Simulated assay, not measured.
Amino acid sequence: MSSILAGLFGTQSDYKKLELEVENLGFLDSEYIVYLSDDHHNSQYLASVEIKNKDITDKVRQIFNENHAHKIYLFENMSIDQASYIHLKRLIDARSKAEIHSSPDVRIKVQHDGMNSEVKA
């Protein structure tokens, strides 16, 4: 079965350029989806590409990176027909919640004995 490579893109990324590069790689219109909001000129968007051959994954990932993808997700055993926006968004939200985000340096206090006989009165 195929896999879906999905990328979340920022406002500075041009979705038309992304579509052109994906098509130049040999993908048909039916093998990728660009999910746009009503105001697609100044908003983030999501794109997904159906990967049938694992060798092409790196090439699509490179195109996503060149088009300023914030995050890239691989969903195995999924076809483009199953890649609705709502379904992908739920999967991405679940993965984001499961990620362990880096935390600031944590200092661990060790237990001490408190005041002892060395303290002068």
Score class of each variant (00 low, 15 high):
Ala83Arg: 05
Ser84Lys: 09
Thr57Lys: 10
Asn67Thr: 01
His40Glu: 10
Ile100Asp: 13
Ala94Val: 14
His70Trp: 08
Asn116Gln: 12
Ile108Phe: 03
Ser37Leu: 07
Asp39Pro: 01
Arg90Val: 12
Ser103Trp: 07
Lys120Pro: 07
Arg107Asp: 05
Gln82Leu: 07
Asp58His: 10
Tyr15Ser: 13
Ile4Asp: 01
Val49Ile: 09
Ile86Leu: 14
Thr57Met: 10
Ile108Val: 08
Asn77Thr: 07
Asp14Pro: 03
His41Gly: 06
Asp105Ser: 12
Glu23Ser: 09
His112Ile: 06
Gly26Asp: 04
Ser103Gly: 11
Glu118Met: 08
Val106Arg: 12
Gly26Pro: 04
Tyr45Pro: 03
Ser43Gly: 09
Ile92Pro: 05
Ser79Tyr: 04
His101Ile: 11
Gly114Tyr: 04
Asp81Pro: 00
Tyr45Ser: 08
Ala6His: 05
His68Asn: 12
Val119Gly: 01
His70Lys: 12
Tyr85Leu: 12
Ser30Phe: 00
Tyr32Met: 03
Arg95Met: 13
Arg107Tyr: 06
Arg61Asn: 15
Leu20Ser: 15
His87Gly: 07
Gln44Val: 13
His40Pro: 03
Met78Ala: 03
Tyr45Leu: 05
Asn65Arg: 12
Gln44Cys: 12
Glu50His: 00
His41Ile: 14
Ser117Pro: 04
Asp93Glu: 13
Leu20Gly: 04
Asp55Phe: 05
Ser103Leu: 14
Asp93Ser: 09
Ser3Gln: 04
Tyr73Gly: 03
Leu91Cys: 10
Ser37Ala: 12
Leu25Asn: 04
Val49Phe: 03
Gln111Ile: 11
Lys89Ala: 13
Glu50Asp: 02
Tyr73Gln: 01
Glu99Pro: 01
Gly26Leu: 02
Lys97Leu: 13
Gly114Phe: 02
Ala98Gln: 14
Ala94Pro: 05
Leu25Glu: 10
Asp105Ala: 14
Leu18Glu: 01
Asp113Gly: 10
Asp38Trp: 05
Tyr32Ser: 02
Tyr15Lys: 06
Leu88Ala: 02
Ala83Met: 03
Asn67Phe: 03
Lys59Trp: 02
Ile4Ala: 00
Lys16Leu: 12
Ala121Asn: 13
Arg107Lys: 09
Ser48Ile: 05
Tyr32Leu: 03
Asn53Asp: 15
Asp81Tyr: 06
Asn53Gln: 07
Pro104Thr: 11
Gln111Tyr: 08
Gly114Arg: 02
Asn24Gln: 14
His112Thr: 11
Gln44Ser: 15
Val106Cys: 08
Val110Ile: 15
Ile72Phe: 06
Gln12Asn: 15
Ile56Ala: 03
Phe9Val: 00
Ser48Cys: 15
Lys16Asp: 10
Lys17Tyr: 04
Val110Pro: 11
Gln82Asn: 08
Leu88Met: 04
His112Asp: 12
Leu91Phe: 11
Asp29Ile: 02
His101Pro: 07
Lys120Asp: 10
Arg107Trp: 05
Leu74Ser: 08
Tyr35Ser: 15
Gln82Val: 00
Gly26Trp: 01
His112Cys: 07
Ile86Asp: 13
Leu8Gly: 07
Ile33Val: 10
Pro104Arg: 10
Lys97His: 11
Ile108His: 02
Leu5Ala: 03
Leu88Val: 00
Tyr73Cys: 04
Asp93Cys: 04
Asn42Leu: 12
Ala83Asp: 05
Val106Trp: 07
Glu23Gln: 14
Glu19Leu: 06
Phe64Leu: 06
Tyr35Val: 14
Asp14Arg: 11
Ser37Asn: 07
Met115Tyr: 14
Ala83Pro: 06
Glu31Leu: 01
Asp81His: 08
Tyr73His: 10
